[in-house]
Nucleic acid binder design. Structure first.
Lengths: 260, 260
DNA sequence: AATAATTTTTAGATTTGCCTAAAAATATAA
DNA sequence: TTATATTTTTAGGCAAATCTAAAAATTATT
């Protein structure tokens, strides 16, 4: 049996390894878990004992295949719960992290797969993060940071790097929820701030920081050659989410603001 | 802050007080929690410290108003989650207790009320147990044990006293899910076993034990005077669950087998 | 390479929740 | 009412998970 504390450490190690692409250090884990290095060392011994991590004193840790599997399952659970909270229970995307943090530890009885089924096998959570499938396979999207767009590019909001409530609420205010369309109109060289047109036609200016924390998928490259053309929301969604439109109910996308 | 262990003890004390209608004893709590009397004493001190119970050495305990409120909220959460698991995620009624036991401890952010709203403010859980509302008010039904029926009585299954998976699965096999109609045809004096006709016309014999663990609501007293009359499922439901049929979606009752 | 700075580990405590065994209180029976 | 049985509490320990402070190892700097 694995405790909740152990599960949380596995997830933290997974997250760090994903970003750093090398062994996670004690300090990095302590920072991620908001605890002390001493506590981390204690826990690393326990996890190594259970063969969930490879641990060598002073050398940092890596997940074993088994640890990786567990961490992936946890992230799957976390994100599926987030989908339920947002799409079924009506929570805002900035309200669900804490709750999902608790829900992900609920064990047993094929719950995850039933949840997955009920939600229609979503591939991305309400923040645009991928949800691994039952076999641990991840979905990917060709997304880039808003800041890397070229002036004139059209794009659709696909995710966030910063998951803070402050940022998510700011995006809500700017009408930049997942699926929102935008066009980069201008980049001010002075501070790298960006002027964009949003889906509803409004023009707003975003800081460089926003540009570095918002993921978008560039769209309609072809259209600029052929001139304006109207795309059906269904087609846009299929392009955006890389999957068969027919196979999915319309439910999941009801809250998204695809243009307007 | 209150721990999960503390919450579980509160719930146990509530359950015992409900049945016994007097102060819950240390041993009774130990039995309910499947632990030792010594552990219970430890915990009782802690709960008394937090003013959740009135505790006098050797005299058993009672919930304070605050403790009662917490216990009621827990039961509300537990049963709402059970409704979600059965009606939305497709679990059977004998599979959900363990999961709800975990889910009831998830805290925060108006989750319970959103869940309640999503489920359509159900008043009873999948086993027929009442779900207190947000203010802690309970719903009641005029139900009796099947064993107390008189020969010739017609009734509808409304709940169970024994919540064991074995009993629930047995009921499923006998087509005696919540909402199932039945008529008591005969009571054998030898062993008090009961011959009944179920909603689909089949005749079966049930042991005395079943009769003492199955709650039913007597129906159609008037009809015997007026002869057979067909009732709409909607009307039956309204009678059975004591509420406005129109106000509720049909969803919640889809799995019920009202006759056929 | 030696010293300084940083990171990591160890040592020793603490809290929660649980246990067993023994003592104390209460209830039951002769 | 005294003896016996039962219930409850106390005492002492244990394991998980955390902490602070000090020691050890590693990394960076001169």
């Amino acid at each position: 049996m694995i405790s909740q504390a152990e599960e949380n450490y596995l997830k933290a190690i997974f997250k760090i390894s994903e970003k750093e692409a090398k062994a996670a250090t004690t300090n990095a884990i302590a920072a991620e878990m908001q605890t002390t290095a001493a506590s981390v060392t204690d826990m690393l011994k326990r996890l190594a004992e259970k063969n969930l991590i490879d641990y060598e004193k002073y050398r940092g840790v890596q997940l074993t295949p088994e640890g990786n599997k567990l961490a992936t399952a946890l992230i799957r659970k976390h994100r599926l719960w987030e989908v339920l909270l947002v799409e079924k229970l009506g929570f805002a995307w900035d309200e669900v992290h804490e709750l999902a943090e608790q829900l992900e530890h609920v064990q047993g009885n094929g719950l995850v797969d039933r949840l997955d089924e009920f939600l229609g096998h979503p591939k991305f959570d309400p923040h645009g993060d991928p949800i691994p499938d039952a076999e641990g396979r991840w979905s990917f999207r060709q997304q880039v940071l808003l800041g890397t767009l070229k002036v004139g590019d059209h794009a659709v909001v696909t995710g966030v790097d910063d998951h803070s409530a402050a940022f998510l609420q700011y995006l809500d205010q700017m009408h930049l929820a997942l699926g929102a369309q935008l066009e980069l109109l201008e980049r001010f060289p002075y501070d790298q701030s960006l002027r964009i047109r949003t889906g509803n036609g409004q023009e707003i200016v975003l800081s460089e920081k926003v540009g570095q924390n918002l993921y978008v998928k560039i769209s309609w490259e072809a259209d600029r050659d052929f001139g304006k053309r109207i795309m059906s929301p269904a087609f846009l969604m299929a392009q955006l989410f890389h999957r068969d439109v027919q196979r999915r109910g319309g439910k999941r996308f009801a809250p998204l603001q695809l243009g307007k």
